[in-house]
Design a protein around this nucleic acid. Structure first.
Lengths: 336, 336
DNA sequence: ATTGCTGTGTAGAACGTTCTCCATTGTTAG
DNA sequence: CTAACAATGGAGAACGTTCTACACAGCAAT
């Protein structure tokens, strides 16, 4: 132990072979006899050798995949991450997460940082960047974009079918007898296209139109406060809606608070639905009707596509995951 | 652009100097004239050069800090991470997160992976490993351990003062007139010492004793279900407690559900308090009394200690962060 | 016996940095 | 005018891998 770290040279010396041979064994490359395989594996075990990723990076793979998180606070990230790591659990790949923040600039910085750390591929979750920027990144490294609709040719994409999800909610509410159904969406300053909230709002409009109903979209923000403010405005109207569909559960929680404060009981006076089916939506005290996008499947799919891409596929793929509606206690027939 | 990536050699050529000189400028090392500085900086900007972390790793620093997450789902991780990144925002360091899972084995694997990727230092959040393992890791790389009490000499530690936090809750409840106060804690299978829940339970016992009251600890798990089951058992007793202090908010939510199902109103029939002050605790519909440990401060402190350690400090430090009690609607005087 | 494979092992050059000397210059002291 | 020294720039050896050549053996086909 000269310097603490066991290198490939130490293993080679111990096994009485060349470093090149050890490298072959480690990588499972072609041209190794069974005997060589055994000798080297034994030496590796005895010495506790682990390949040094940085050194590897200089020539070949690094076996590291990065996941850029746009907003650490987003409650369904854990599901996606679990899906990713679950899928990769039995491979040699390791997953590292990069907190990218919500600004395009900080996200770009994080993406660069991950490229500089020579990761083999990147999964970008709901990135807030222009399509051009994404395409540029895709030339430097294989990427899979999660949560952006209209994926380009340069990269793979995994999306929740947000049009369908919004449709499920509207159909459900209309089925209960609602006609005045409002939608609260997120007001985005960044010039990014195909973000989930945009598509959800569009899906809502389509579904309302399909039922011959007038749409009513209010843009605040996907926060508890945003939902609260939006609902307060909607509920102050003369012909106030009998149902509010918030584009995100966190906003729906704000809607519930506004209903409480206005003395309206849910779902008798007001039905409320959200999107994302975050963990607390299922708590008895909340019991929020919501659209569930299977984060586990989304993450696993993204991981699969990325590995495929890294290992050679060149044709680009967009995978759409179907959401399901989870009906709970916050929606019911309108009081007539 | 031979291979896509701009290297230090490209910059050197452009500026008409040696690679060694460029390296000096990049690192801000000693021995660079103002003129050299200007020339090189210009060339860097023109070419858009960014240092290649893997290559750096082979000799010096990598300017990457790792944060090992023990449970991605833990709702106060975002605060800690924000604290870490906030502190590091204006430095050259980048933060990468490693989802370590809840098993000692997977956590060890992730830690190794981060070491193999030659990070400069690691922050381990609530690691479930033996002290010996932690000490072993600390010999390989500077680490800061967050959330483990009784930190060793080999590394720095940041802890929430959980004894104090538990004391705050008990004092508050006793002040309201409660005498039968039960505590729900987490049953840990791993042989790790000084975990927060253990210390919280101990703090609870100490505080009860100080008030001359009998303690009553029930170990289930820190999940919604664990809180529910625990509360159900406690509430079925003849002399059921008038207050339940759950060692984690998530469990407190389960306690609330159990109270609902038992037809008990909160706080009249049962006071409930939690720990962690997770985001939804403040929602009107929940309004949970809880202990707030300032994750932001914890994260920022951990980052500071780690950087200090990397940059030379050898004496080890343990920093204790004081929690505060946030009184909300779930606690009140017992019905007499 | 020669030729041409195929299968296995090795030498040694990358990869992009940092870092330890060393060379050169200019400046100051004697 | 020389000696000593400080300040600056550069040469070149690491760092731990991978990977392209190539060497050598054994064997089958000529």
């Amino acid at each position: 132990m000269t310097s603490g770290r066991v290198t490939i040279a130490d293993v080679a010396r111990r096994a009485g072979v060349s470093t090149a041979a050890v490298s072959k064994v480690v990588r499972g490359a072609y041209g190794v006899s069974a005997e060589m395989q055994a000798k080297v594996t034994q030496a590796i075990d005895e010495l506790g050798y682990r390949p040094h990723a940085a050194a590897r990076a200089l020539r070949g793979r690094t076996y590291t995949l990065g996941v850029m998180l746009s907003d650490t606070r987003n409650p369904f990230f854990p599901d996606i991450i679990e899906g990713v790591t679950g899928r990769l659990g039995d491979t040699e790949y390791q997953v590292l997460l990069g907190p990218g923040g919500i600004e395009p600039k900080t996200q770009a910085r994080m993406t660069d940082a991950m490229i500089d750390r020579s990761m083999d591929g990147l999964i970008l979750i709901s990135p807030v960047m222009s399509d051009a920027e994404l395409a540029a990144i895709a030339t430097a490294i294989p990427i899979v974009v999660v949560g952006r609709h209209g994926g380009a040719a340069a990269y793979d994409a995994v999306v929740d079918d947000d049009v369908m999800g919004a449709g499920l909610v509207v159909d459900h509410l209309v089925g209960l007898g609602h006609t005045r159904i409002a939608h609260i969406t997120h007001l985005e300053r960044a010039r990014a296209q195909g973000l989930p909230h945009t598509v959800r709002a569009e899906g809502y409009r389509q579904a309302m139109r399909a039922h011959g109903l007038a749409d009513d979209v209010l843009a605040t923000s996907f926060t508890e406060e945003g939902g609260f403010e939006g609902a307060r405005e909607l509920l102050a109207r003369d012909d106030r809606p009998t149902a509010i569909f918030a584009g995100a559960d966190i906003a729906a929680l704000g809607v519930l608070r506004a209903a409480d404060e206005a003395g309206l009981s849910v779902p008798e006076d007001l039905s409320v639905a959200g999107y994302d089916n975050i963990g607390i939506a299922s708590l008895k005290r909340i019991s929020l009707t919501s659209v569930d996008q299977d984060g586990h499947v989304i993450g696993a799919t993204a991981a699969r596509l990325l590995v495929e891409r890294i290992e050679g596929r060149s044709r680009s793929v967009t995978s759409s995951v179907s959401p399901t509606l989870i009906v709970r206690g916050t929606t019911g027939p309108p009081r007539r």
